[in-house]
Every structure is written in C-alpha cells, then in structure tokens.
C-alpha cells in the first residue's frame, strides 16, 4: 500500500525494502520506523505508525507493539538531543552515577526530564558496550546516534554549548 509519505520518500523506502525478499517485507519494520521517527522530529506519533502499517500491510496495533518494545523508539516527543548516560554496573564501577548527578545539577533537570527550551532530554540507559571508557553517553537525535566516551562534566557541557549555538543559528536563518 502506498501513501503520501511513501511518495515523498520513495527512493529511501525502496532501498530499505530491497534488503529483504518481497514476500518478507515486514522485516523492513525497524528501518522504516527509524525513517518515520527522523521525519517526525524524533518520535513516532500514531500517524507515523499508520504510515508504516500501510507500507507493510500489517495492523497499526502490530506496529505500536514493536515501537513499545524497543528503547530507541519514542512514542512521545522529547528533546532534540537525547543524552543517554550509561549507568549500568560496569560503568557505575567507574563513576557513572556520580557523573549523571553532576550532569543533572548542571542542566537543572533529572534523568527522564527535558530542558525547558526543548533542546535536551536526559536519560539513563543500559550497557552500550563502552564499559572501558566510562563515563560514557550516547546522543540520540532524529537523524542518528553518536557515542561520547571518557566523558567529564566539562566535555559534556562543551557539547551542550555547541548544540545551543547551532540551534540559535538555525533559528536565526
């Protein structure tokens, strides 16, 4: 089933679908959800689920169930930059919990909250395979994800400052 979203992103969607045999196109679920999440600015609203359901010929409920299962999909809007600090056990053994608290104080929000300007959401995550480089966080944006390892408060705040500047410039244009 094709829809307006499909027409708008035809090349990208066809490239995704081409990775799987046509009779198993449901396998494109996760990649399509990433695409929809990007286009909706970092979360997947009900109409986004509808779009994916139509392309894959499955029910919206099925799509909703998948979105809810995976932590990198968000059904609610958050900050443009999601700072996801690993506080799992190996990182916690190397100071990750203290680091998170410092970051909470500096940003004036608790883990799970978003800054009033809507720029940053601070979150805790489970192990991200960087245990030897703690403290570490990943930054998820609508477009993708980057790792920031061997962090301290100063380095983290420099990143935040750079994002604020970039956003201000974007707004001024």
């Amino acid at each position: 089933m094709k829809n307006a979203f499909y027409e708008q992103h035809r090349d990208e969607i066809e490239a995704i679908l081409a990775k799987y045999p046509p009779e198993h196109k449901r396998s494109a679920m996760l990649p399509l959800l990433y695409l929809v999440q990007r286009e909706f600015g970092g979360h997947i609203p009900p109409e986004g689920m509808q779009i994916v359901a139509e392309i894959l010929d499955v029910s919206v409920t099925e799509v909703d169930g998948v979105v809810g299962f995976y932590t990198l999909f968000h059904d609610r809007p958050g900050g443009r930059y999601r700072i996801q600090v690993c506080t799992d056990m190996p990182c916690a053994l190397r100071g990750a919990e203290d680091f998170l608290h410092q970051l909470e104080d500096a940003l004036g929000i608790k883990a799970g909250e978003t800054t009033p300007d809507g720029l940053i959401t601070l979150e805790e995550v489970m192990c991200i395979a960087a245990c030897d480089k703690a403290p570490v966080f990943q930054v998820q944006t609508p477009e993708g994800l980057t790792y920031h390892e061997n962090m301290d408060l100063e380095k983290a705040l420099a990143l935040v400052e750079a994002w604020r500047k970039a956003e201000a410039e974007r707004a001024a244009q």
């Binding site: 449901r26 494109a28 679920m29 299962f69 995976y70 932590t71």
Partner: peptide, 27 residues
C-alpha cells in the same frame, strides 16, 4: 550481505529473539 539495525533490546542477542526482531517483530 546486508546490515540490519535493532533498536535497543538486550534480549535480541538471544538468537531466536534476534530472528524475530529481524522479521520485524518484538524480540
């Protein structure tokens, strides 16, 4: 050879959960 990205779920390291996920389902 194709790459396929999961979306955040430890359980998908279990091989049959991984296959479910690769089929576009909950892992």
């Amino acid at each position: 050879i194709y790459t396929h990205l999961g979306a955040g779920a430890y359980i998908c390291g279990e091989e049959t959960a991984l296959l479910e996920s690769l089929e576009g389902k909950r892992g």
